Amino acid sequence: MKRILLLICVMFSTAAITAQENKLAIGVILDAANDKPLESVNIVNLNQVTGTTTNNNGEFEIAAKVNDTLHLSYLGYKSIKVRVTNDWLKFGSSEIKLTELALALEKVVVNQLRLTGYLEVDIQQVPAPNDNYRYQISGLPTGYEASKPSGINKIIGSIFNPADFLHRMFGKKPNELRKLKKMKQDDEIRNLLASKFDREMLTALLNVEKVDLDEIVSQCNYSKGFIQSANDLQILDAISECYEEYKVLSRGRNKRL
C-alpha cells in the first residue's frame, strides 16, 4: 500500500513539474514605427527547437519555459532574440516590436556580348557553366558534391578524414548535434528554413557564426555553387547528411580495428 501511495505521489509530482515547465509564451508582434500588427513573422524557440508564425493580427503562441530564447525574424525587419521570463508566462500576452531595416539596392552590372561572327572567337566570350558534380562512394546512401577540378581529391580526403571539421565544430557542443535531429523532425522549422537564404536562423539554432557554417558545408565536400544558391533547409540537410556519413565511416573504421 505504501508503495502504491509513493508511486502516486511521484506521478503527481512529475506532472506538476512538467506543467510548470511546459507553458505557452503568448504575444503579439507590431511594427515599431506605426504599431501595426505584423503577419507571418517567424518565431523559433532556440532551446526547444520548435517554431511558429504570427497570424493576421500579429499574434502567436509557442511552447516555452523560463529562460528559453525566442528568435524573431521577418523580411525587411531587424531580427531580435527575446528571453522568456517568469512574468511573461505568468501574466499572459507580451507586446513585441520589430524595427524595419533600410533596404539598399545593389548595383547590377550587365556585360553585353559583342559577337564577331566567327564561332571560334565568339564561343570564348560565353561564360563557362557551373561545373558542379556529385560523386557516389560505395557503401554510402548519398554522394559528395564537389567542383570538377578538385572533386577526386576531396573524395579521397573525406574517406581518410570524414567530416572531422564538423566533429571539431560541434564536439564541445553536443546539444547542437542533438538539435540537428530536432530540426529535421519539426515541420514548422523545416518550412521556415525552406523560405530563407540568409543563414541567420540556422546560425542562431546551431550557435555558430555564418562563416563557420559555410566552412562546415565546404569541408563536407559541397561545392561553392551549392553553398551560394542553397536555402537554409538544404544547408541543414547537407550538414545532417554529412554527420550521418561521418558516423557510417567511423563505424567502419572501428570494425576494422
Rank of each mutant, 00 (worst) to 15 (best):
Y77G: 01
Y77E: 01
Y77A: 01
Y77W: 01
K78A: 11
K78G: 07
S79M: 04
S79L: 04
S79E: 10
I80Y: 00
I80H: 02
K81T: 09
K81Y: 01
V82T: 08
V82F: 08
V82K: 09
V82S: 04
V82W: 03
R83L: 13
T85D: 03
T85S: 10
N86D: 12
N86M: 08
D87K: 11
D87E: 12
D87I: 06
D87T: 10
W88T: 13
W88Q: 12
W88M: 09
L89D: 00
K90H: 05
K90D: 11
K90T: 08
K90V: 03
F91R: 11
F91D: 08
F91H: 06
F91C: 02
G92E: 00
G92F: 01
S93F: 03
S93T: 10
S93W: 01
S93P: 03
S94L: 05
S94K: 15
S94T: 12
E95H: 07
I96V: 06
I96G: 00
K97R: 12
K97W: 01
L98M: 05
L98G: 00
T99Q: 08
T99I: 09
T99H: 05
T99K: 08
T99F: 06
E100K: 08
E100D: 01
L101Y: 03
L101G: 01
L101F: 01
L101C: 02
A102W: 03
A102C: 03
L103S: 07
A104I: 10
A104P: 05
A104M: 14
A104E: 13
L105G: 09
L105S: 13
E106L: 14
E106K: 13
E106W: 05
E106F: 09
K107P: 03
V108W: 03
V108Q: 14
V108A: 13
V108L: 08
V109L: 14
V110Y: 08
V110Q: 06
V110F: 09
V110E: 10
N111T: 11
N111M: 15
L113Q: 06
L113V: 11
L113C: 02
L113R: 13
R114L: 14
R114P: 04
L115D: 01
L115I: 06
L115W: 04
T116V: 03
G117P: 02
G117H: 02
Y118N: 09
Y118L: 13
Y118K: 12
Y118V: 15
Y118D: 15
L119I: 15
L119K: 10
L119H: 15
L119D: 10
L119E: 15
E120F: 04
E120S: 15
V121A: 09
V121L: 12
V121E: 08
V121Q: 14
V121I: 13
V121P: 02
D122C: 02
I123W: 02
I123V: 10
I123H: 05
I123Q: 09
Q124T: 13
Q124D: 09
Q125C: 05
Q125A: 13
V126Y: 05
V126L: 12
P127M: 03
P127S: 04
P127C: 04
P129T: 05
P129M: 06
P129N: 04
P129H: 04
P129W: 00
N130L: 13
N130A: 15
D131Q: 09
N132L: 09
N132D: 15
N132S: 14
Y133I: 06
R134Q: 10
R134A: 07
R134V: 15
